[in-house]
Computed example of a mutant assay.
Amino acid sequence: MKDILQDIIANKHIEVERQKQAVSLRTLLGLGGERIERPTRSMRASLAASPSGIIAEFKRKSPSKGWLHPGAAVADVLPAYEKGGAAACSVLTDPDFFGGSLGDLCKTRRLVDLPLLRKDFIIDEYQLYQARVMGADAVLLIAACLSAEQCLTFAELAHTLDMEVLLEIHSEEELDHLNGYVDMLGVNNRNLGTFHTEVENSFRLAEAMQTVIREKGLSPLLVSESGISVTATVAKLRKAGFRGFLIGETFMKTDKPGDTLAQFIGGLS
């Protein structure tokens, strides 16, 4: 079976090297100096305080489903997400597989006051500096892409840059990536190798996650990612201990994602 994640990571290495050659880290920090001084917003606190806990995602396409909303504009969708009641927003910045860009993140930061997650495949410290300069409040670190040591290094750097960390796992074995710099611990219900989605994955892992969290004396907020399409699932996930719910395709495949989000939140009990 084709491993989509391997293709994405191979492409990501090429993409990041090109970006570093075009704009050195020194140049990036020089151009973005004022932006790095800008205070960030806590995504973890926003999710914990929110009655919905929804992280609304801006995603034009996916490797498995193709284009969801090719003409989607940040200016149309993201303010509507904020108005609709999202607790935070996730912005895909991968161009080749998800139709996103760092420009989308930068534009979003100018338009909304919600905490913003840079959603991408982070494999290099350079991307963390990019995220901060472009307006991210939090970054996604994917256990399947990183060693536990890399995860620790990147998470610590993210905190140094005043960004929070959402660590994403898909299996119990990946819980060894959890460290004290992780603010939110997410389960991806989508297998990144096959892109098959199964929400049951969150329920399967909930107890193991809470056990490891207790053993390590940590307190990350739990997030369920992908495959959530009905409000009843959110209610069940809350009972299992989750407080954040990352939802993208359910909203983005409709003509007006913000309105769909508002209707979804209206249906939460």
Rank of each mutant, 00 (worst) to 15 (best):
G267P: 00
K59Y: 08
L29F: 05
K12R: 12
I265K: 00
F264C: 00
L152F: 12
S226Y: 10
E57M: 13
L218V: 13
E125I: 07
F251K: 05
V74E: 03
L175P: 02
E15V: 06
D76F: 04
H170M: 10
R132P: 01
P115M: 12
F251S: 05
Y126W: 01
V139I: 15
E215W: 10
L185I: 02
A143F: 03
L128E: 06
L152A: 11
Q130S: 02
Q21K: 14
P115D: 13
N179P: 02
S46T: 06
L237F: 06
P79W: 10
Q19R: 15
E57Q: 15
P79A: 13
A143Y: 07
G241C: 10
T153H: 14
I54D: 12
D183H: 10
G66R: 11
L152C: 08
T153N: 12
F195V: 01
F251R: 07
R26F: 10
K83Y: 09
R243C: 10
V133T: 00
E198K: 02
E249D: 05
S42R: 11
K2D: 04
L146M: 03
S202W: 03
T153Y: 12
A49C: 03
A208D: 08
D120S: 03
V234N: 09
N188W: 10
K107Y: 03
Y181F: 13
C151T: 15
R190I: 10
A232F: 03
L78E: 06
A45H: 11
D3I: 04
K83R: 15
L111S: 08
T27N: 08
Q150W: 00
L185V: 03
F121E: 06
F98E: 14
S269L: 04
D137C: 06
R26T: 14
D255I: 04
L175H: 00
M184H: 07
P39N: 14
L128D: 04
I228Y: 07
E249H: 02
L205S: 04
R26N: 12
D7L: 08
G135K: 03
V133H: 00
G30S: 09
L140M: 11
T194A: 05
D76K: 08
A208E: 07
A49D: 08
E249M: 05
Y126V: 09
N179L: 06
L114I: 05
L218M: 15
V230D: 10
